[in-house]
Design a protein around this nucleic acid. Structure first.
Lengths: 334, 334
DNA sequence: CTGAAAGCGCTTACAG
DNA sequence: CTGAAAGCGCTTACAG
């Protein structure tokens, strides 16, 4: 593998000069620059990033971390889409993408994660994080790594989808379709702040609806479709009068649909179902699921762009994206 | 951030000695080792991996690459599960995971990918790759990076699921259920070698069935559920006599189901559907989809373990995993 | 505009 | 068993 030295010799200049050409320093004569560029092409030189990292602290590596929890985050299609957005911007900026999924231990921070933070590899970090328990972002920031939070963890720099507004939209749509007996499947507040906010948005709209409190029944699932099915069972057993079930994640909503259909219910004729997330499955379920789209690719892009602004010394402010309602066949007029 | 030097001073030894303790060299006295370990703990020292990389060539970074193609690989749930398996082994081995998705250009290799390969960051590489067009693995291997192929691309070191056998199993099961009028949705051979092998397995079993050639109708999709829906439309328009549709990816199979149901067909009463991949959706579709599971997490793990064997100087041989049939409600006896 | 030299934080023969 | 020294491939003041 050719080194800076090889290029310098070939061009008849010092390594310092080659380095300057590489970094686009203005004070290099056009002639020299041309010679160096030629030598780079001829030798097929690529910079050795690990060496550059050591000398300059610039590693060209962005780390993306998300906690390893709750029904295997690797099963969440949203994460993949967010990664897609992150990847797009990183690639465009000639940065590489490192993945880390710290385990959640009580009290102390994951070893491997701390190792990574202090490895000298990470120039900037994006934390996908809606778990209140512990902030991985803060840990990185403490060690001097510019960080952006993708989610609700407090941080000076964050990007999130407005789940409160999404919850409002969802319930408003349900009410507009004439439903007054509503079952909700949510997750425990301490598990996920995004879902918790969706719930707050729902409560806000419901409070203004003038309906009796008893007309909104809430049960808890834990993200998986299985838990959604169980939750639907629980809901209907106690409240056969429900005309709609709102699952605050699509996976739970689809689990609920599955349960309902296996128990002889027609959707949406007998009962409507709506979800949240617009995972790929939502478009091809039977019937297709009415849901809220967070635009995860855009979330990933925005977070990465925010991070690059920070790396370039700017002081960007928090980005909040509005979710969009996706109307499909699983919600009927009542 | 404390450095090796800080530790050495505190322990009253040379940096060379600290380095030896860190790398578990045997020839260090117990007393010295203890003093060094103590100093490491007291200073909160973590090695600077970029520096180590430069000095030793050991970067503790594994790159995972998959080509950026065909209906957004980021939408493929299998990739995420494979990553899960890779991540598990990497974490256990204290390695970090770098992601790269080279673009497919005709002729020349993706710039960013070549940059990565020559960056000095990559100690080993796993290529998830079933596209015949170009081998990213070969490129890395050429530059001296030990590589494992996860898929069918020729390479000395590879791991794959036996898709031929999977195809056989699938059609055998379909035949055992009494179906004799069979529609297949596959993808063009040049797009994906794994799917191509499934098709070969199907043809092999069909040939032995003694059924007339005309009883097996093949059309092409391109991975997305939409393309599966279209393919189903195409199949039924020409061949209303079909009693089963075999989608060679779950997404296409689910798209087909969706189309059938929207056109008034009951599944599996009117027509059966089976898929391949066992994506999460398959378990909660309505009805749940009979399919083939490749065990993607295991694939990821095996590939990573193979890679570590190589990094440790061994000469491991190719690993082939057997897929498993998952029987669900979408396939009925005829 | 260009280059000599030090240094980034490690590891690795080599000598003792 | 331990340490001095060179070196990994780059960048960055500094001097000219």
């Amino acid at each position: 593998m050719p080194t800076l030295n090889d290029v310098a010799e070939r061009a008849g200049v010092s390594t310092a000069t080659v380095s300057k050409v590489l970094s686009n320093t203005p004070y290099v004569s056009a002639a020299t620059r041309a010679r160096v560029l030629k030598a780079i092409k001829e030798t097929g030189y690529y910079p050795h990033l690990a060496a550059r990292a050591l000398a300059s602290g610039k590693t060209s590596i962005i780390a993306v971390v998300f906690p390893y929890i709750y029904d295997a985050i690797f099963k969440d299609p949203l994460v993949m889409r967010i990664l897609e957005g992150i990847e797009a911007v990183c690639t465009e900026q000639h940065y590489n993408l490192l993945l880390n999924t710290p385990r959640l231990h009580k009290g102390k921070v994951d070893e491997a994660y701390m190792q990574l933070v202090q490895s000298g590899y990470v120039e900037g970090l994006i934390a996908i994080d809606n778990v209140p328990a512990m902030s991985f972002a803060a840990e990185a920031e403490n060690w001097g790594i510019p960080t952006v939070v993708l989610g609700y963890h407090n941080g000076d720099y964050q990007v999130y989808s407005d789940d409160y507004q999404g919850g409002q939209q969802l319930l408003r749509t349900v009410l507009e379709h004439g439903h007054t007996q509503i079952g909700i499947i949510t997750t425990p507040d301490e598990m996920n702040q995004a879902v918790a906010r969706r719930m707050q948005g729902i409560h806000a709209v419901f409070a203004q609806s003038g309906l009796p409190t008893a007309n909104l029944v809430v049960v808890y699932g834990e993200f998986s479709s299985e838990s959604g099915a169980e939750a639907a069972h629980e809901l209907l057993e106690q409240n056969p009068q429900l005309t709609v079930i709102v699952g605050l994640t699509d996976r739970m909503a689809i689990g609920a649909m599955s349960y309902l259909q296996q128990n002889g219910k027609q959707i949406p004729t007998d009962i409507s179902v709506v979800g949240y997330d617009n995972i790929p499955m939502a478009a091809v379920s039977n019937p297709p699921l009415t849901t809220i789209d967070q635009n995860p690719v855009e979330l990933g892009q925005q977070a990465t762009e925010l991070l690059f602004k920070r790396l370039n010394g700017a002081e960007p402010s928090t980005v909040v994206l509005s979710p969009a309602l996706i109307m499909r066949g699983s919600l009927a007029q009542r």
